[in-house]
Amino acid sequence: MTRRLVLLACVVLLALIPILNLLPDASPFHVSDFIVSICGKWICYAILALALDLAWGYAGILSLGHGAFFALGGYAIGMHLMRLIGPRGVYGHPILPDFMVFLGYTELPWYWLGFDWFIFAFAMALVVPGLLALVVGYLAFRSRITGVYLSIITQALTYALMLAFFRNDMGFGGNNGFTDFKELLGMPLNTPATRSVLFYASLVVLVLAYLMCAALTRTKFGRVLTAIRDAESRVRFLGYDVTQHKLFVFVLSAMLAGVAGALYVPQVGIINPGEFSPGNSIEAVVWVAFGGRGTLVGAILGAFSVNAIKTWLTSFAPDLWLIVLGCLFIAVPLLLPRGLIGLLRRGGGK
């Protein structure tokens, strides 16, 4: 119960942020643009954390490649945003985005077709991560690859995608990725109004994602996942097709991560292959571990608190962050095996 209240308080506080941003600068309750944009980002991270927690915290699939699903979702919406620039690029080409003109493309590659439509792009932000998870998951789970081997494979996956997206001939803008977006759904980006809309859209998705995950974990399917996490072969003995169950949750989780990425990119205004870097996926694991894996509220709290620490730290000692991240990675399992939520439970009873 305490957990639910904490979550509700967080959501209410977050919902107030864009409103407080409207207050005059002089007001003691005024919230800066910086806070609005950074909280908008963190909400997307929290959705990613939920997705990862579903796979790792419940089903025991420790993916070190969830950043890849997030980035693919971001690229899908980024392609749409690029299409919306139209002839307003620096080169003023009527059809092609600037980077394609620069690289000497004469026509739009086939896989860019359809991205003119928001609905299509948004669907791709779900479908592409989902399909990738389906293929990778099928191969891995069918061969009963678990534990650290699975982690290594997923880490390699995101690294390979990073290298691929760095290439100019992939048709995704190479190392510059996509940026200079103009508008989305008719709203010019980078206005306070659009920022608020994106912020609230992300918050709504976070709440919906939480409710979906909470409902799912309370079904028998959720209990099968927990059972798989704790004793996979015993579940198999009971006659369950463990591969199917893991695949189902892994694909769902990847799709949710894709949505998070799709909400993230319009807010930050850029997507590039750095988003695939292995470190991002590892950071996401740290959020979940820090907040408390296997509890959805914990995953959300973890995403916010670790990112708050990161932002605070990088403002005066950017070099320290990686060291702190490493320390968290080691210290959390030892000192806080159940994460922040564990503290909450100890403090506030059940």
């Binding site: 079904t219 028998k220 399917f221 369950y240 097709d241 949750v249």
Partner: peptide
């Protein structure tokens, strides 16, 4: 039934 969908609907 032991598939994911029947378990979700159970």
């Amino acid at each position: 039934p032991r598939g994911p969908i029947p378990c979700l609907r159970w």
